[in-house]
């Protein structure tokens, strides 16, 4: 295995494009190192991105959103008051990735590129309508976050392409987001089901919403039917039930060691209700 410490994204992309074998980028490393240690994936070339200027930065975009560098760790994100105030759901999703120790290393981009349908940070990003900056041999492009994962362990990134940053849009007024997952323990598990809801209100009424589900399909999915079930409502019981039903209908999970398809489908509905209520409360200005 060759270790490269890239000094710029173009250098990283160049090394990757020219590498004949298996290439991995090192941002947080919490997946790459596990795969390396277990012998699952031993890259021929490992390209460390952490020394590239700006990768640890979180900055305001001109539109009032946030641009999060590729090497910003979960712990750094969780300590950022601005992002936390605007996008608490995104922050809490990332905050659920692994232990305190893993938080010291793991990154949003890494969680996304690992391609796991159960990635805790991804539903929140999808619900928030986040976009990623992809840099490759042919320059940079902006891509909606939900277009990156294409299946378990797979992404749409081409040879030599890598993520440079993740951009969250401006929060805007009367908005709120939330993420919750179901796990058998209280910590340290992979999500059996994850759900993020992002919504904005006009008065008491939900004006717009995005609902994303994790671990119920080959990728994190955006569920427009679930959003439609609550838009135009004040999240009354009927709306919540319609939301849960839409979430269940959208779920097409597998049964595995972490949960049965039947259980996952049921819990998708339960979580959708609970998360929508949390997001709604935040949109109304309830802190936390």
């Amino acid at each position: 295995m060759r270790y490269h410490c890239a000094k710029s994204f173009s250098e990283a992309a160049e090394i990757a494009a020219g590498a004949p074998g298996i290439t991995r980028f090192l941002a947080g490393g919490t997946d790459v190192l596990v795969q390396l240690r277990s012998g699952l994936v031993t890259p021929d070339d490992l390209i460390d991105l952490k020394q590239i200027p700006g990768v640890h930065d979180i900055s305001r975009t001109p539109e009032g959103g946030w641009r999060i560098g590729v090497a910003v760790s979960g712990a750094e994100l969780g300590e950022h008051a601005g992002v936390k105030a605007d996008w608490p759901g995104v922050v809490e999703g990332m905050g659920l990735v692994g232990s305190t120790q893993v938080q010291g290393r793991a990154t949003l981009a890494g969680n996304l590129c690992n391609g796991s349908p159960a990635a805790d940070s991804v539903p929140g990003l999808v619900a928030a309508e986040a976009r990623v900056t992809v840099i490759g041999p042919n320059g940079a492009r902006e891509v909606p976050v939900e277009e990156i994962p294409t299946g378990p362990g797979k992404t749409s990134l081409g040879p030599g392409e890598l993520i440079a940053a993740i951009t969250l849009p401006a929060r805007g007024a009367a908005g709120g987001d939330a993420y919750q997952r179901f796990i058998p323990r209280t910590e340290m598990d992979i999500a059996v089901v994850g759900c993020a809801v992002n919504l904005t209100l006009t008065g008491e009424t939900i004006a717009a919403a995005r609902v994303a589900l994790g671990a119920v399909a080959p990728t994190v999915i955006l569920v427009p039917e679930a959003a439609a079930a609550i838009v135009g409502t004040a999240l009354d019981d009927a709306a919540l039930e319609a939301l849960a039903a839409a979430a269940r209908a959208a779920a097409s999970p597998i049964s595995d060691k972490r949960g049965t398809a039947e259980f996952r489908t049921h819990v998708a509905g339960v979580l959708a209700r609970r998360v929508a209520q949390a997001a709604y409360a935040r949109a109304k200005g309830d802190t936390k």
Binding site: R185, T186, M188, D189, I190, K257, R258
Partner: peptide
């Protein structure tokens, strides 16, 4: 692995 062989953690 300990990720999936789930022994109790402190918060459990």
């Amino acid at each position: 692995i300990f990720l999936d062989y789930r022994i109790p953690v402190a918060s459990d």
